[in-house]
Amino acid sequence: GTLHLNGVTVKVPSLEKAIKAAKKFAKKYNLEVQVHGNTVHVH
């Protein structure tokens, strides 16, 4: 999967790991997580 954090793109081995990391990051910075196919966006 691919993880987008505020314009930074990170390749992640699995989508589940990407979503987990995204949710952790989003919670910390009070951001929103959106999943588009195998790409996770945090903004």
Rank of each mutant, 00 (worst) to 15 (best):
Y29S: 00
L3S: 01
T2F: 15
A21P: 00
A21G: 02
G7Y: 06
L5I: 15
L5T: 03
G1T: 11
K28P: 01
N30L: 07
V33W: 07
V8Q: 06
T39K: 08
V42F: 13
K20H: 09
V42E: 01
A26G: 04
N6A: 09
K28T: 02
E32M: 11
G37M: 06
N30F: 09
V12Q: 04
Q34V: 14
Q34H: 15
S14G: 04
G7T: 09
K28C: 15
K11R: 12
L31C: 09
K24I: 09
V8P: 03
V8T: 08
V33M: 06
A18I: 07
A18Q: 00
T39V: 13
H41W: 15
G7A: 05
T2S: 07
A26H: 01
K28E: 05
L3Y: 00
H4W: 11
V42N: 03
L3M: 07
H43I: 14
A21S: 06
K20G: 05
V35E: 03
E16I: 12
G37F: 06
G7N: 09
A22Y: 06
T9S: 10
N38P: 05
G37R: 04
I19A: 00
K27N: 06
K17L: 14
K11Q: 10
L15G: 02
K24S: 06
S14N: 13
L15N: 01
T2L: 14
T39S: 11
K24C: 14
N38D: 08
P13L: 11
H4S: 08
K20D: 09
H4G: 03
G7F: 10
V42G: 03
A22Q: 00
N30M: 08
T9P: 07
T39W: 09
H4T: 11
K24G: 03
V42S: 02
A18D: 00
V40R: 00
K17P: 03
V12N: 02
L31W: 08
N30R: 05
N30T: 04
K28Q: 07
P13H: 12
E32K: 11
K27W: 05
N38V: 08
S14Q: 06
Y29I: 05
H41V: 14
Q34K: 11
V35G: 02
S14V: 04
V40Q: 04
E32L: 12
A26L: 09
V12M: 14
K28R: 09
K23T: 09
N38K: 04
L15Q: 00
T39C: 15
V40G: 03
G7C: 15
T2H: 11
N38Y: 09
V10G: 02
K28N: 03
K11F: 13
L31P: 00
G37E: 04
Y29P: 00
A22W: 10
T2Q: 08
V35L: 05
V8L: 13
Y29K: 00
V8Y: 13
T9K: 09
E32T: 14
F25W: 13
L31I: 07
V33F: 12
E32N: 11
T9Q: 09
K17R: 09
A22G: 03
